[in-house]
Write a protein that binds this DNA or RNA. Structure first.
Lengths: 232, 232
DNA sequence: CGTCACTTCTTTGTTGACAATCTTGCGCGA
DNA sequence: TCGCGCAAGATTGTCAACAAAGAAGTGACG
């Protein structure tokens, strides 16, 4: 059962120059955490992870170390690792950082977008509108991710891209909840359309403003949760 | 000679909950890299580091792993670690990210500044003006760091703070060069004063704009270097 | 009945040896 | 002389056993 997995992981190890099993363990464990399989605060006992992933303890520890660097896991000396808890206050901070970073990326996307990419943006916008009109919220959420991802691709800003990726991962659980709040799609759809329009018209300043307003409205929601006592 | 060092590192290990020698090795190695003791591209051979820091190989590896996460070191499988080279293009990207992050921090500082902190800002501004007038560029550079640090303290934005710290570290060498460019202080002094004024008057939007203009002018300098072929 | 010290067990941290890989220097032949 | 393979050395990657720390259970004492 582990033969094929070993082969692929070895293959990738050759290509990327990473520890053969460490990378596999890290990726699988990250996926497990993001999918909610391990809850925040839950202890990650090395022996259990060894059994689950079939990887040596050495590589498990390296993987945990990596995820600690990504902010998904917290390691306490002699006390092991646990899934990091992220408070609502910290969620707001992270989203604020995402706001300015994605704003930067949107501006650069507006400077670099090609005609082909512009029509791709338009298409996503169209699909989003349809999804909202027909109440397909899950599909809308997927399109949302695809839109932000495409904008990041267009911008080609590796540094911002990497940071946004790790920040988004830390909020994976919260974002999921947010997109399901009542009225959210009706609020965010026009925001998304403004972002698309600004990038398509190659207007960096307006693209940045539109992106920031969009994420600022997410922060507003988070702040309101803070007051009504909606705990993480 | 290593007795006292071991004592302090053990002490800190207890307090922070980190590996006793790993943290020491990481900090010392980072300092060595930032001070230019190891040049970009230079190989960091584990055996040498063991001898230099008097730390076990295990902890040296952990330290290298950490610094890799900070972007100071690049690790290639079976080929060891080397000081990461940062191209001019990447320097620009990193500075762009710093621009938006420090802008965010400046805005939040304007919202939270106390009267005592406001006068401290004023004082730094005064000292900066004096330093420029008397041509003390080294002192001006120090005050520059102190100003940005104070703003970050006032803002109290842990997430942005941490990211800015790692980004600044990656550029440590370049920043040093930049502050010595002819005419730089005359350009940046009024920018700094505008930042101080905006924060003191508790105007977040203007504080953010001023900070971004300040760092944008750094990016302009970098872009000009890019064209004249001023290599990293 | 609660609490404190002690013991036991679980879990993590560290080390040294060994294996895999890369690099370097050498010799051979064209 | 130059290029090519091969072997020796250097360097990193991995593992399994051991040491140390923390957590949990136990029993005696107030």
């Amino acid at each position: 059962m582990s033969a094929e997995k070993n082969l692929t992981s070895v293959r990738r190890a050759r290509d990327t120059g990473e520890g053969k099993d460490k990378a596999a363990a890290r990726d699988e464990l990250r996926t497990a955490i993001l999918s909610g399989e391990y809850m925040p605060g839950e202890r990650l006992v090395e022996a259990q992870l060894i059994e689950r992933f079939g990887v040596s303890r050495f590589n498990i520890r390296l993987a945990l170390q990596d995820l600690s660097g990504e902010g998904l896991v917290e390691i306490q000396r002699n006390r092991g690792a646990q899934v990091r808890k992220i408070s609502l206050a910290e969620t707001i901070e992270i989203t604020q950082v995402r706001m300015v970073l994605e704003g930067l990326v949107a501006a650069q996307a507006a400077e670099r977008v090609t005609d082909a990419q512009a029509s791709e943006l338009d298409e996503i916008g169209l699909l989003m509108r349809r999804a909202v009109e027909s109440g397909e919220f899950r599909r809308y959420s997927d399109l949302n991710q695809r839109l932000h991802g495409l904008i990041r691709t267009i911008a080609g800003h590796a540094t911002a891209d990497r940071l946004i990726g790790t920040l988004r991962a830390q909020l994976a659980r919260h974002q999921f909840m947010l997109s399901l709040l009542p009225g959210r799609p009706q609020t965010s759809l026009p925001q998304h359309e403004r972002i698309i329009t600004a990038i398509r018209e190659r207007d960096p300043a307006r693209a940045e403003t539109a992106m920031r307003e969009h994420i600022a409205s997410v922060i507003e929601v988070l702040r309101s949760l803070e007051e009504t006592g909606g705990h993480p």
